[in-house]
Amino acid sequence: MRMLRPVRLHQALNRTVHTITLPDPDGRAVWAVETDIMEDHRARLYRDGQRTSMAKMPAGFTIPGGKIEVDAGLYGVTRVHLVTPDGQERRLAPAPGTLEYRRAVLTRDHPRLSRGIAVIAVVILLVNLVLAAPAWLEMVTSIPEVAERFGTFTSPVLLPGWLLATLTVAGVVAATERAVTWRHNRIVDAETIWTSL
């Protein structure tokens, strides 16, 4: 039986662990869900540190007290909730060592700084939506196979390579910031698919 390993600093960008403690016939059980977006697109369920099952995402694990639903996208976990039989939902808490946990601690200890980072992330994504996304769309539609099927697109904005690269890196960081704080907006986050190319 495999045991749950702590999240190391070098794994913080790709590996997540979320936990929930629930009543159990033997007292209380700690359930944990582990995902690693670099390794595979699977979720692993642990009970008191021992792996009990694994499933391809989106995944659902039936446990005493409900079902844990898990899914992940390009920038991390998008859903990790316990759904009870009466339909109520509880999000599992990020485990120490994860990027989500570190970000939650920053929010708790420095709320103003946290809000500032959140605002900057939104501004970066909006700037990317206007400037970088059209440039990436032009680049993608210049691929012969794509152009043949969908046609080409010419960006109304011409960006130097260094600026496009800078906006792309900033967009990835901003999208990751929004993912680890569970923020999502259809308009603000519309361009994150381009920053992941």
Rank of each mutant, 00 (worst) to 15 (best):
R2P: 10
L4G: 09
P6C: 00
V7E: 03
R8C: 06
R8D: 07
H10T: 11
V17C: 04
T19M: 10
I20H: 07
D24S: 10
P25I: 05
P25L: 01
A29P: 01
T35V: 15
I37M: 06
M38A: 10
L45E: 11
R47A: 14
R51N: 09
R51F: 09
T52Q: 14
T52M: 14
A55F: 11
P58Q: 00
P64K: 10
G65S: 06
G65L: 04
D71I: 11
T78E: 13
R79Y: 03
R79L: 08
V80K: 05
H81D: 15
D86N: 13
G87Y: 11
A93C: 00
P94A: 01
P96K: 08
G97D: 08
L99C: 07
R103T: 15
L106V: 15
H110G: 01
P111S: 13
L113E: 06
S114C: 03
S114V: 04
S114Y: 07
S114W: 13
I117N: 04
A118L: 09
V119C: 10
A121W: 13
L125Y: 05
V127T: 12
L131N: 12
L131M: 13
A132G: 03
A133M: 13
A135F: 04
V140C: 14
T141L: 07
S142F: 00
I143F: 09
V146L: 07
V146T: 15
V146C: 11
R149N: 10
L164N: 13
A165I: 04
T166R: 03
V169M: 06
V173M: 12
R178C: 12
R183Y: 09
R183K: 12
R183H: 14
H184G: 15
N185Y: 02
R186T: 11
D189I: 01
W194N: 06
